[in-house]
Design a binder for these strands. Structure first.
Lengths: 238, 238
DNA sequence: TCATTCCTTTGGTACGACCAAACTATGGGG
DNA sequence: CCCCATAGTTTGGTCGTACCAAAGGAATGA
């Protein structure tokens, strides 16, 4: 048995994928630079264009290349965001299944409640300051629903930044992206904006008081209410 | 702006991808059945084999097809496991960067500590029973390091099953898969087995006593010690 | 009935061609 | 001298064909 074969179809392309990704990681093809033309690559590697294209496609799916339709692939060292974009298509299918959205949202509750606990215990001064600023911006936007939605996201995003773990902001982005179809089609009511802002205040209060339980409690109420609102909008949406 | 363009290269294949995935989800191609031959597909969709292959490759990366090198692609309705396999290649690159493993492991601590809290508060009788059984198996395997490793994983896996959210077991599988390279190459010492088993006991104790703080505390100590051990083995492995 | 062998099917790769979009160089007008 | 329209070139996207080798199945013989 020669290899683990993580690839989709052939093997020859696989070798090229490895060699190319090695070159990319070695910096031989600089970040942000377009990859050489396919016709050059086929010459360089002694393969047909078929294989070159296959390899390029694979690498783009891996986030090492950013391939817009009619343009040269751009070399990209993958960040944690690339991971979520790799998940995008799969998740989109998953979310169509019954309970898919609920399952995803529940993990968000799980993660975010852990985050506020951690925030209550470990948040630094600048973290707190950022949260306060976000909260003020959130309050100022209560009358503008689009802006309120934006500042709402920004407030939650800060929670994911406090641990200084780059995985977490990417995760938040993922949540926002995947749950947006439900959220953004929900009616934006002034009342709800006020309630949500109030919930944010309670969360921050818990953090300020260094009370993980209170902070978590507030966060859970907040998110669960949000879920209830979504259910009211979409009915049987499991 | 016409489309989000999640694809790698062309656009024609994109259409085929959509039509194929629709057929798959509609059950027109049954789960477990091999996809029709490429030459048939190109006829059915009125496209060249190039595009067919491109689409097949894309679908296999999305987890809708399971494509072994020289075989017919097998139709698969993607589960939550498919998602993590889609992440595999990206993550493997990410883990090579400095701090990559640490970042991933930290998210595990975050999630798992939230899980034990939840377990302490909501675990049902059968959950507790399963945990006890797993713990006994773990104790019985203290002298057999391979077996101990297995039962260790099984114990932790149970924590991910308690919320009955299918995302979580998949996540645990992902953690195990991605952190395995570090873990499995670590020396298995009898002493450590005993210590780890003891940590498991403490975690379960916390759950049994319905004391989230104690359970979380024990879990964090356990995982952080595991990380320390990994660092001792690999040194500067950030 | 089972193992061997031969033939057909089918995926993997190569080569060549063409088109249209993207890029580049060129030249004219401000 | 700079900016912009234009022509020419590059280059990715698609198609068709051809060939090979492995997989799958059918026919054959023990």
């Amino acid at each position: 048995m020669p290899e683990t074969s993580e690839n989709g179809t052939g093997r020859a392309a696989d070798s090229v994928v490895r060699r190319l990704s090695a070159k990319i990681q070695a910096g031989e093809y600089s970040d942000g630079t377009p990859l050489p033309p396919e016709r050059l690559l086929m010459e360089e590697f002694g393969i047909s264009r078929t294989v070159v294209r296959e390899a390029v496609q694979a690498l783009s799916k891996q986030g090492l290349l950013e391939a817009r339709p009619r343009h040269r692939p751009i070399v990209r060292k993958p960040g944690y965001d690339a991971a979520i974009s790799a998940l995008e298509t799969v998740v989109s299918h998953l979310l169509k299944n019954a309970g898919g959205v609920k399952n995803l949202f529940d993990t968000r509750i799980l993660v975010e409640s852990a985050l506020v606990r951690q925030a209550a215990q470990q948040a630094q001064r600048d973290d707190i300051a950022a949260l306060k600023a976000a909260l003020e911006a959130n309050e100022a936007a209560i009358d503008d629903s689009d802006e309120f939605y934006r500042t709402d996201r920004a407030f939650h995003a800060l929670l994911y930044e406090i641990p200084r773990n780059p995985v977490l902001p990417a995760l938040h982005k993922a949540y926002v992206t995947w749950l947006a179809p439900q959220w953004s089609r929900m009616p934006r009511l002034h009342e709800r904006n006020k309630a949500n802002h109030g919930a944010h205040v309670q969360i921050l209060d818990g953090i300020l008081m260094r009370d993980p339980d209170a902070a978590e409690e507030a966060l859970r109420r907040h998110l669960e209410q949000a879920w209830t609102q979504v259910c009211e909008t979409f009915g049987e949406d499991l």
